Simulated scan of single mutants.
Amino acid sequence: MQKIVPNIWFDGTAAEAAEHYARVLPDTSGRVLMRYPEEGLPDFQKALAGQPLTAEIVVGESAEDGGCRIVLINAGPEFAPNESISFMLNFDPSRDPDAAATLEAVWAGLGDGGEVLAELDEYPFSPRYGWIRDRYGVTWQLILTHPDGEPRPFVIPSLLFCGAAQNRAKAAIAAYTSLFDDSGVGMIVDYSTATGAVRADSVMFGDFRLAGQWFTAVDSPEPRDFSFTCGVSLQVNCADQAEIDRCWEALSAVPEAEQCGWCADEFGLSWQIVPEEMGSLMASPEAYGAMLAMKKIVIADFPK
């Protein structure tokens, strides 16, 4: 099971988005995972009765690692994704002889109804790179990798430390890699000189593994008026209550953000600390209401 699963918040369009991504991204499937109960919803959610609660996509299913699972949360307009967390897509010519053409096709698909943040062009670090916001507000970085570079997965969640989290990428990497097994730092490149919003020791580019999964982190070179939100969160699938307790203790730093297994860490990043068997725990008609009453998830408090 994928230990850390990115979750993206959608304003009523999660199922539609899952179908869109399955068409646009290579070797990708999409499906509805769970629906809201028909009864017992709080007033602010009653209009969602019976509608999808979550959908999922699995990107790059033909890859050796089985692809990357991303959950799409179907809710309201309370939160929206922004550039603080994007998804880097690595098009590797050593794995796909038509990588450049595949990149162009995905760029066109994601760009349909979207907005370009960095033009698809040649850059010093890649012969083909671009950054785009799609029609749902999700941001993607597409890069043609060097054939002789160190292999990386097709999808890598990318953290942009800006706003309240400016210049904290290095501290975050150290904190996160100390928490999970099978974790470590890949490459860290500093800016070397202070410029714009960064210090000389800020991170120009860094990548790291958490529970065997790759992430990247960057300190924004320019001031930005946003940072991490619940628009994109990281779900940690825990083996038992002891692991839930340990992760919650390490990651929850904002008491007012604690709700239904959600918490925010000292950098503002949102996490969902949940049991691996969350699906079966939610099978009971009373489970949704029980979950709404929780801050940290307590497995024993779910109805049997």
Score class of each variant (00 low, 15 high):
I8H: 04
M34T: 00
N167V: 06
I8F: 07
E115P: 02
Q51A: 02
R128V: 01
D181V: 12
A118P: 01
E78Y: 02
P93R: 07
S252A: 14
A293R: 01
L110M: 13
L33P: 00
P26L: 07
K46V: 12
W214F: 08
V116I: 11
W131I: 05
D301E: 14
A118L: 15
R133N: 12
W262Q: 04
F205R: 04
D121H: 05
Q272D: 02
P223W: 10
F226Q: 14
R199Q: 15
V189E: 15
E78I: 00
L269G: 07
A242R: 11
P37N: 03
N167K: 09
L251Q: 02
S233I: 00
T54F: 00
G30R: 14
M294A: 01
G268Q: 12
H146C: 01
L48V: 00
E39F: 04
G231F: 14
D225C: 06
V24M: 09
G196Y: 15
D219H: 10
M1V: 07
M294H: 00
A287S: 13
I57P: 05
A105Y: 01
C247R: 15
L120H: 05
T229Y: 10
Y129L: 02
L89W: 05
D11L: 07
A300I: 06
I188E: 10
A15N: 03
E286D: 14
F267V: 05
G184I: 06
I297P: 02
I297E: 03
E104V: 03
E243R: 09
L234F: 15
V138N: 08
L179E: 12
G60K: 10
V106C: 02
L160T: 12
T145R: 06
E119F: 05
A197N: 11
Y136S: 08
D219N: 15
A264H: 01
P255K: 06
E56C: 12
G114H: 08
A293D: 02
L269R: 10
L103M: 09
A242I: 03
Q141W: 09
I244W: 00
